[in-house]
Design a protein around this nucleic acid. Structure first.
Length: 861
RNA sequence: GCCCCGAUAGUUCAGCGGUUAGAACUUUGGACUUAAAAUCCAGCGACGAAGGUUCGAUUCCUUCUCGGGGCACCA
C-alpha cells in the first residue's frame, strides 16, 4: 500500500474495474428485491455544471447504499436532447443541431463517467434518437385514437419579421429576441393533451404519495386548483338565453347586486354594438397584454355595459358590468358579484358606488355595521327568503334543488388546470405523426410507417418553421385514401420526451415495442431525484403519462415515482465592477482574491489580474450571466471525484441550497487524505480479523459503543432521512475519537480493524473509489461491493454503567456514574449524598424528585 | 395579500424537554521545518426577541422581527 493518496491513479483503476466487470449492469433475473433509483435526465447543454454533479451524486449515494443492502439496483442514464438551445447554437455556429447535440452528449458522458457513477450505461439513450421517438410517436397515435389528444386553436407569440413563433423566453419586453420586432398574438391550430380529463385522478393520487415532499404536493394541488361550486344561469331580459356564471358561494346568491364579465366575454362584444363608447375599455383589457404579476396588482376598473340580466330567484334586474378583474379563461368568464361577502366585489362596488346587500351573518352574533370589508366566512343566511336560517351546506343543497328544478343551474366542479398544448413550430423536436388529408382530415401515421424521421442535417436560420420549408418532408400521401397529403410540420413540446423516459429505461433494447413486461418488474421508480424547479410541470406531466400508459395496459402501477427528493440549487460568490453608466461586469470567483478579516469574514476582494478592487455581490445561483460558474472538470482534475462528491454531500443537506467554497473543498480533500493515512498506519501494524471478543478497557468499550451507535445513525441518515451531511459529520466524530487512541495489542488491533472496515463501508456510497481501494487493503481478496452493509451490534450498544446528572430545581449540581441496574431509590439516595448536591438541599424541604432512568435526578425543594 | 419553510460559532450545517449544545471550514497558538506547504496537537467562538406551558425550554406553544420559497383577482 502506498503511503500517499493518489486520486488520479485510484479513480482510474476503480472505474476501469467497474466498467470491465460490468458491475452496475443489471437485469431482472435476480432473486434480490429490485430498487429503481433515478436522477432527472439532463439537457446536453455542452458541459456539466455543479447542479448536475450534485444531483447525480445524490442519486449515486442512494443507489450504492441500496446495492450494499442487498437490492438489485437499477440506475440508468439518458439525455433530454431535443430543444431550442440546439437550434440557437446551430445558427450561431453553423452546425446542425443533431451534430451539436451528439457532440455535447459525448463530452458530458465522459465527464459523468469521471464522477464514478454506479450507472448501467447499457440502457443509455437520447430522446432525439429515432429509436426513442419512434415509440413516442406510436404512443401519440394511440392516445389520439383514444381521444386524449385533440386539435384546436391556440395563441402563440408571433414574430412578424422573422415569420416565426417564439417561445416565451424568446420574447423580451414584448419584442422578438432576434428581430426586435413587436411580438403579436396569433391564433394557430395546435394539438392538445386532455390532461384535464385526469385532473381529479392526478389530484387524488397525491394523497397516496407519502414519499413526496409536502411542498411539491401542495404546489401540484394549487396548480390543479379544484373548486366545487355551482353553475348559475342569469336569464337575459329577452329570455333568449342566459349569462352563465360559476360560484363556490351559492349561499350568497341572494346578495348579488351586479354581475361582472371579462372584457373578452361575448356579451361584452354584444354590448359594444349598442354602446360604442365601451370600445376603449374593452380594447385596453381584452387581451390582458400585461404580465400576470401586473394583472394581479392592477387597480380594479370597470364600466356599466348598459345591459341587465334577471336574478334567477327573484327575477330582479341585475346590471351587467364589464370588469378587468374577471378572468376570461376561468369558469365561464363571468361572475356573480356579492360585494358584502367577497373582497374583490366589495372593493369594486365601493369604487363604483354599487349597492351592498348583506345576506350572511356569523354563526354566533352579528356583523359590525357599517361594513368596512367583506365578510367572507361561511355563516347563516338571512335576507334570503325561503333560504333564511340555513348554514352553508343546507343552503348549497337547497339552491341546487331550486336551480336544477327550474333549469337555472347545476352543481359543478371547476379546475384551474388547462389542457396541455404540445405543438411547437420548431425544427429540433419529435415530429407529430399526423398527416393532413383533404378528403380524410387528420390521419395518424400508421404503425408500419413509424418513425416519422426528423432530417438531421438541417441548419435552421431562425426564420419560419424549418420543416414547413422542406417539401421532401411534408409532401406525402394519405394512408387512408392514397391521395396527396401534407405531413404535419410541427414538433412536440420537449416535456413530452421527458414524460415517459423513466419507463423506457427498463426495456431500452426492445425495438419492436414501446414497453414490455420488464417495466412491471422495475417500475415504479423507488427514488426519483431532481431540482425543485420541476415540482409542477415535469412531475405532473409524467404522472399524467403514467396514467395514460396504465390505461393503455402498458404499465401496471398507477404512479411513476414512489419517493421524490428535490435538491437545492448550487450557489457561488459573485464579484463585479460597475462602470460610469451603471453597467456591471461580472468576474469569475476563480479570478478574484478575497480579503478576509481575522474571523474569516469577507471584507474586500481584488481581481488577481490587476490587483484592483471589485465589488462583492453576494451568493447567487451559478449562472453564465453572473459569471460565477465553477467548472467541475477542474475540481475533478485537481482534487478527484471523491473529494468533489464528499464536499457536495457534506456541505449542505440535499434539499437546501449549497454554497460553493474552495475552502470547503480543501476540507473534504483533507478528510480523505486523513482516512487514507489512518488505514495506512493500521496496515503497517498488520491487518487482523475484526474484533469479536476480548477484554477491552473502558475507553475502548466506549469507542466500540460509539462505532455501533454511528452505524445505527448513518444507516438511518442515509436510508430514511437522506441527510448525507450529518452521516459524514458523525463519521468525522468517530474518527476523531479513534485517532485519540493507540492500538498495540492484538485485541486492540482487532478493534481498530473493526472501526476502519466499518468506516470504509459506510463511506463507500459517498466516496466509492477510495473506499474500494482501502477495502482491498483491509481485506485482501474480498470486494467491497460483495459485502453487506454494516449492522450495529446490539451487545456493543448495551452499556452497563451510565452517567446520571443531578439537578436541584432544574440546575445542574453534580453527576454520578452508576450501574444501570440500580433501582430508582438507590440512585436517588446516591444523588442526595453527593457533596455538592447536599449543600443545596440542606435545610430545605424536598417537594418532589423527578427521575429519568439512566439520565437524571432532579430534586425540587 | 395568502400559504409554507427557516433563524444555533465569523461561515455552512447538526442536535435535543435534562450532562460541558456537535462537525467541517475560517481563525489563533504550538509541534515538525533553515523557511514554507502538507500533517499533527491545542484553543477562541453560538441557541433572533418577548411572553406562555413545565420541576426544568435552545428544544413545545403564541406573538413579533428578519430571511428563503411558492401562489397571486381562479369567483
Amino acid at each position: 500500500m502506498q503511503e500517499n493518496y493518489n486520486h488520479k491513479e485510484i479513480e482510474k483503476k476503480q472505474q476501469a474495474k467497474w466498467h470491465n466487470s460490468k458491475t452496475f449492469v443489471v437485469n431482472e433475473n435476480n432473486p434480490k428485491p429490485k430498487y429503481y433509483c433515478l436522477s432527472m435526465l439532463p439537457y446536453p447543454s455542452g458541459k456539466l455544471h455543479m447542479g448536475h454533479v450534485r444531483n447525480y451524486t445524490i442519486g449515486d449515494v442512494i443507489a450504492r447504499f441500496y446495492h450494499l443492502n442487498g437490492y438489485n439496483v437499477l440506475q440508468p442514464f439518458g439525455w433530454d436532447s431535443f430543444g431550442l438551445p440546439a437550434e440557437n447554437a446551430a445558427f450561431a455556429s453553423n452546425v446542425p443541431p443533431a451534430k451539436w447535440t451528439y457532440q455535447n452528449i459525448d463530452y458530458m458522458r465522459w465527464q459523468l463517467q469521471s464522477l464514478g457513477l454506479a450507472v448501467d450505461w447499457s440502457r443509455e439513450f437520447a430522446t432525439c434518437s429515432p429509436t426513442y421517438y419512434k415509440h413516442q410517436q406510436w404512443l401519440f397515435t394511440k392516445l389520439y385514437e383514444k381521444g386524449i389528444i385533440y386539435r384546436k386553436n391556440g395563441i402563440v407569440n408571433w414574430d412578424p419579421v422573422d415569420q416565426t413563433v417564439l417561445a416565451n423566453e424568446q420574447v423580451i419586453d414584448g419584442k422578438g429576441w432576434r428581430s426586435g420586432a413587436v411580438v403579436i398574438k396569433k391564433e394557430i391550430p395546435m394539438y392538445y393533451f386532455k390532461i384535464t380529463d385526469y385532473a381529479e385522478e392526478l389530484l387524488q393520487g397525491l394523497d397516496y404519495l407519502d414519499g413526496w415532499p409536502e411542498q411539491v404536493k401542495t404546489m401540484q394541488r394549487n396548480w390543479i386548483g379544484k373548486s366545487v361550486g355551482m353553475e348559475i344561469h342569469f336569464p337575459y331580459t329577452d329570455n333568449l338565453g342566459s349569462l352563465i356564471v360559476f360560484t363556490t358561494r351559492v349561499d350568497t346568491l341572494m346578495g348579488v347586486t351586479y354581475v361582472a364579465i371579462a372584457p373578452g366575454h361575448e356579451l361584452a362584444t354584444a354590448a359594444l354594438k349598442i354602446k360604442p363608447e365601451l370600445a376603449s375599455f374593452i380594447e385596453e383589457y381584452k387581451n390582458g397584454g400585461t404580465s400576470e404579476a401586473q394583472l394581479a396588482t392592477q387597480e380594479k376598473k370597470g364600466v356599466f355595459s348598459g345591459l341587465y340580466v334577471k336574478h334567477p330567484v327573484t327575477n330582479e334586474l341585475i346590471p351587467v358590468w364589464i370588469a378587468n378583474y374577471v378572468l376570461m379563461n376561468y369558469g365561464s368568464g363571468a361572475v356573480m358579484a356579492v360585494p358584502a361577502h367577497d373582497e374583490r366585489d366589495f372593493e369594486f362596488a365601493s369604487l363604483n358606488n354599487l349597492p351592498i346587500k348583506i345576506v350572511i351573518r356569523p354563526n354566533n352574533g352579528k356583523l359590525d355595521l357599517p361594513m368596512t370589508a367583506a365578510y367572507t366566512e361561511r355563516g347563516i343566511l338571512f335576507n334570503s327568503r325561503q333560504f333564511d336560517g340555513m348554514d352553508f351546506d343546507r343552503a348549497f343543497n337547497a339552491f341546487e334543488e331550486f336551480l336544477t328544478k327550474n333549469n337555472l343551474g347545476r352543481a359543478k366542479t371547476n379546475y384551474r388546470l388547462r389542457d396541455w398544448g404540445i405543438s411547437r413550430q420548431r425544427y429540433w423536436g419529435c415530429p407529430i405523426p399526423i398527416i393532413h388529408c383533404e378528403n380524410c382530415g387528420d390521419v395518424c401515421v400508421p404503425e408500419t410507417q413509424l418513425p416519422v424521421i426528423l432530417p438531421e442535417n438541417l441548419i435552421p436560420d431562425g426564420s419560419g418553421s424549418p420543416l414547413a420549408k422542406l417539401a421532401d418532408f411534408y409532401n406525402t400521401t394519405c394512408p387512408q385514401c392514397g391521395a396527396g397529403a401534407r405531413r404535419e410540420t410541427d414538433t412536440m413540446d420537449t416535456f413530452v420526451d421527458s414524460s415517459w423516459y423513466y419507463a423506457r429505461y427498463t426495456c431500452a433494447d426492445n425495438d419492436k415495442q414501446i414497453l414490455d413486461d420488464r417495466v412491471n418488474y422495475w417500475a415504479p421508480v423507488n427514488q426519483y431525484i431532481g431540482g425543485i424547479e420541476h415540482a409542477i410541470l415535469h412531475l405532473l406531466y409524467a404522472r399524467f403519462f403514467h396514467k395514460c400508459l396504465h390505461n393503455l395496459g402498458l404499465v401496471k402501477s398507477s404512479e411513476p415515482f414512489t419517493n421524490l427528493l428535490t435538491q437545492g440549487m448550487v450557489l457561488a460568490d459573485t464579484f463585479y465592477r460597475e462602470d460610469a453608466l451603471g453597467k456591471k461586469t461580472w468576474f469569475n470567483p476563480a479570478d478574484v482574491h478575497v480579503v478576509t478579516d481575522e474571523k474569516g469574514r469577507q471584507i474586500s476582494a481584488v481581481l488577481k489580474a490587476d490587483g484592483l478592487n471589485v465589488q462583492i455581490g453576494g451568493q447567487e445561483k451559478m449562472s453564465k450571466s453572473k459569471n460565477n460558474g465553477i467548472d467541475p472538470q477542474m475540481i475533478i482534475e485537481q482534487y478527484g471525484a471523491d473529494a468533489a462528491r464528499l464536499f457536495m454531500m457534506f456541505t449542505a443537506p440535499p434539499e437546501l441550497s449549497l454554497e460553493w467554497s474552495d475552502n470547503g473543498l480543501e476540507g473534504a480533500n483533507r478528510f480523505i487524505k486523513r482516512l487514507w493515512k489512518l488505514v495506512y498506519e493500521h496496515k503497517q501494524a498488520g491487518i487482523v480479523k475484526c474484533f469479536t471478543s476480548g477484554e477491552l478497557t473502558i475507553e475502548q468499550k466506549k469507542l466500540r459503543t460509539l462505532l455501533h451507535q454511528t452505524i445505527q445513525k448513518i444507516t438511518h441518515d442515509i436510508a430514511v432521512r437522506r441527510q448525507f451531511n450529518t452521516a459524514i459529520a458523525s463519521i468525522m466524530e468517530l474518527l476523531n475519537s479513534y485517532s485519540k487512541m493507540s492500538f498495540i495489542s492484538e485485541t486492540e488491533k482487532a478493534l481498530s480493524q473493526e472501526v476502519l472496515e466499518a468506516v470504509v463501508i459506510m463511506l463507500s456510497p459517498i466516496i466509492p473509489h477510495i473506499c474500494e481501494e482501502l477495502y482491498e487493503e483491509l481485506a485482501p481478496g474480498e470486494k467491497l461491493l460483495d459485502r453487506q452493509w454494516v449492522v450495529a451490534d446490539i451487545a456493543a450498544l448495551d452499556v452497563d454503567e451510565v452517567e446520571v446528572i443531578i439537578q436541584v430545581n432544574g440546575k445542574l449540581r453534580g453527576k454520578i456514574t452508576v450501574a444501570k441496574s440500580l433501582s430508582r431509590e438507590q440512585v436517588e439516595d446516591m444523588a442526595k449524598q453527593n457533596s455538592n448536591v447536599a449543600k443545596f438541599i440542606e435545610n430545605q424541604i424536598i417537594k418532589k424528585i423527578i427521575f429519568v432512568p439512566g439520565k437524571l435526578v432532579n430534586i425540587v425543594v
